[in-house]
Write a protein that binds this DNA or RNA. Structure first.
Length: 662
RNA sequence: GCCUGGGUAGCUCAGUCGGUAGAGCAACGCACUCGUAAUGCGUAGGUCAGGAGUUCGAUUCUCCUCCCAGGCUCCA
């Protein structure tokens, strides 16, 4: 017997008998490690635990509680899912079953065009647990392309994956599925189930079990809307029952924070069916929040040198022909209405052409630049019926839209100051965890020269780099007219949302023949920067609502204080307190003693009102209030009214953000 | 647009193997006047999303439309 020497993650080397597997290696280090092991890496490449150690390799063990380990668990669980489905629906075809964030899915085509129903998930779940109880091994085999095609003779999707690789297409995706240029790898679980897969997998199905099937959905084969639609099952899997429970709790928390739910509960907005899909109405409370957001934004924009404009909601087709929207964006627009003997009018999906016309209303001088035109512009976009979602994806929305027209020399400075302005405004609303994304030229849909695109992209990159934030490149994600930077924000529960966008545009100025007279007395074309900070007011509203779980900072709360009289006889004092607070600009209501105090407290708490003031005999005599703060169940008695008023006024004026939004 | 599931009182939901419906909360009324997260009793409230078909009879079965949810595709 020979010996092999391997290097441990800490740099130490150890010698093993030839033929020692990764699993035995883990055991030699410690029983706990061996128990948690799901796979290993040799020189960085993931392998199964039964793989013999390779001489000279750097070896490390992948444990179930690591990201890589969970990916192995999820991948293996996906295999069991496929096996269970084949057990329940003999003759089913299975396509791909990758790991995704927090889980996995597997796509199927059932015989006879049958579809999964929600009830089927229970049956499949039970079958999966049977397979896990059977402790079936995952046995890896390597095959030639021909053997692979033969093994999956009755599995058209698997054959297609193998054939695609053979033909030299899509190596990356297929490699993940186990098909390589010269060979394919499979995992055998039982005489009735073998799957194409790169691996690695857990040694046997009994290593799995902390999983849940989440939902069934349709999904196009290869993500192509023109190809057949398969049946997808989503699941999640974790290293322990506890980790699974934590994940499910997180989902439940996200559901509690869902803005659609909060919108109804807090009486902020609704989507009347009579109006149509994706067309929200804001109720008085939601309207108050929205107005405060808009007012503050206006105030900041005015201070930052923006000028305010107003433009109509519809326009002749010609405007969007000139801008190129009808060439590039027609499917996102509502169909035209025909007026005045054949003249076509469109609802506007964007505000930019209107602002351009304001610029063009008379001859401009370089002395007027940069010109920053701002509008809360309502736009209408025909979103496909299946994509409309609460306030975040609507068919009618208001953008806090502005267009900056400047010279090429001013461009860098404008981009820098705009980005600084954006971040400052978002921070005032309580978002402070950002990263930036730079979206570059889309291959298919782009107008203008590559040189212009390169210059614009570099200008954006420079501005982004100066912000000292993480920068992610989104290759090909730009708009048809120019590259963009978007600000992504992480919310209170760690989700990221695309917030503001800043786009550079050399195209529209050209299409519209925009020009200004320069210091040299010559005609020049201005550069245009499109930017929206909230993105859409509706969407920003939704993100804030979820970020704060409905408990908006006091300055944005529709009702800031509710005064409760302990008994009828305290009503006059309660109104006096309310009047004093109103005098400093607070939004206050009085709840008379028609119901028991506890019931009124509860109602106010449920509405997430920042301050509940209870006033009774003691307060009437001493000129005080009982203060019950949101987020606390320990009221403070006997607070001087003056003291409370000052604190509140200060909090509102300072637009203070609660320490930990919840 | 496609797939799956759904739409019953203002909200959350139960129910009807085809004989036009029920609870809790909310609303309203009465009593209780109370010091920090649900007082009790009572009243009212529904073309069972809309339309068409089958049927003696449809909220229930069939078809179409609208709307919602989760995905897919899309996301300027």
């Amino acid at each position: 017997m020979g010996a092999v020497t391997v290097q441990l993650p800490d740099g130490a080397t150890r010698e093993f008998e030839e033929g020692t597997t990764a699993s035995q290696f883990a055991e030699s280090i410690g029983p706990r490690l061996a128990k948690a092991a799901v796979a290993a890496t040799f020189d960085g490449a993931e392998v199964d635990l039964d793989t013999p150690l390779r001489d000279g390799a750097q070896v490390s063990v992948i444990t179930a509680d690591s990201e890589a380990g969970r990916a192995v668990l999820r991948h293996s669980t996906a295999h069991v899912l496929a096996q269970a489905v084949l057990r329940l629906w003999p003759g089913a075809h299975f396509a791909i079953g990758p790991v995704i964030e927090d889980g996995f899915y597997y796509d199927f085509e059932l015989p006879g065009g049958v579809h999964f129903s929600d009830d089927d998930l229970e049956r499949i779940d039970a079958a999966m647990r049977e397979i896990m109880a059977e402790d079936q091994p995952f046995v890896r085999h390597e095959h030639s392309i021909e053997e692979g095609l033969s093994i999956f003779g009755d599995q058209p999707f698997k054959r297609e994956i193998i054939e695609a690789v053979e033909a030299g297409h899509e190596e990356v995706d297929a490699a993940a599925e186990g098909a390589g240029a010269a060979q394919v790898s499979t995992y055998w679980n039982s005489p009735t189930f073998t799957d194409l897969c790169r691996g690695p997998h857990v040694p046997s199905t009994s290593h799995l079990g902390h999983f849940a099937l989440m939902r069934v959905a349709g999904a196009y084969w290869r993500g192509d809307e023109k190809r057949q639609q398969l049946q997808r099952i989503y699941g999640t899997a974790w290293e322990s029952e506890k980790a699974l429970a934590v994940h499910l709790d997180r989902l439940a928390e996200a559901e509690r924070r869902d803005h659609r739910r909060l919108g109804a509960e807090l009486d902020l907005f609704s989507f009347p069916e009579e109006i149509g899909s994706g067309l929200p109405v804001f109720h008085p409370k939601g309207g108050t929040v929205r107005r405060l957001m808009e007012d503050y934004s206006r105030q900041r924009h005015e201070a930052a040198g923006y000028e305010f404009v107003y433009t109509p909601h519809i326009t002749k087709a010609e405007l969007f022909e000139t801008s190129g929207h009808l060439d590039w964006f027609a499917e996102g627009m509502f169909p035209p209405m025909e007026l005045d003997g054949g003249q076509e009018y469109y609802l506007k999906p964007m505000n930019c052409p209107f602002h351009i016309l304001i610029f063009k209303s008379h001859q401009r001088s370089y002395r007027e630049l940069p010109m920053r035109l701002f509008e809360f512009g309502s736009v209408y976009r025909y979103e496909k019926s299946g994509v409309v979602h609460g306030l975040t994806r609507v068919r009618g929305m208001t953008q806090d839209d502005a267009h900056i027209f400047c010279t090429r020399d001013q461009m860098a400075h404008e981009l820098h100051s705009t980005l600084t302005f954006v971040l400052s405004l978002l921070r005032d609303f309580g978002l402070d965890d950002f990263f930036l994304e730079l979206s570059t030229r889309p291959e298919e849909k782009a107008v203008g020269s590559v040189e212009d695109w390169d210059e614009a992209t570099e200008a954006l990159r420079t501005a982004a780099t100066a912000m000292d934030l993480e920068l992610v490149i989104d290759e090909g994600g730009g708009a048809f007219y120019g590259p963009k930077i978007s600000v992504q924000a992480r919310d209170a529960i760690g989700r990221t949302h695309q917030m503001s966008t800043m786009q550079l545009d050399f195209q529209e100025p050209q299409r519209f023949g925009m020009e200004y007279i320069g210091a040299d007395n010559g005609r020049h074309q201005p550069v245009m920067i499109h930017r929206a900070l909230f993105g859409s007011v509706e969407r920003f509203f939704a993100i804030l609502l979820e970020h704060y779980a409905g408990a908006m900072p006091t300055w944005l709360s529709p009702e800031q204080v509710r005064v409760l009289a302990v008994k009828d006889e305290h009503a006059a004092y309660a109104h006096k307190v309310a009047d004093r607070l109103r005098a400093v600009g607070a939004r206050v209501s009085v709840d008379p003693a028609d119901e028991h105090l506890k019931a009124r407290i509860r109602k106010a708490k449920v509405m997430k009102i920042p301050y509940i003031l209870v006033v009774g005999d003691d307060d009437v005599h001493a000129g005080t209030v009982g203060v019950n703060r949101r987020g606390s169940n320990q009221p403070e008695r006997g607070v001087e009214l003056m003291t409370f008023t000052d604190t509140l006024e200060d909090e509102i004026a300072g637009r203070r953000i609660p320490e930990s939004p919840s």
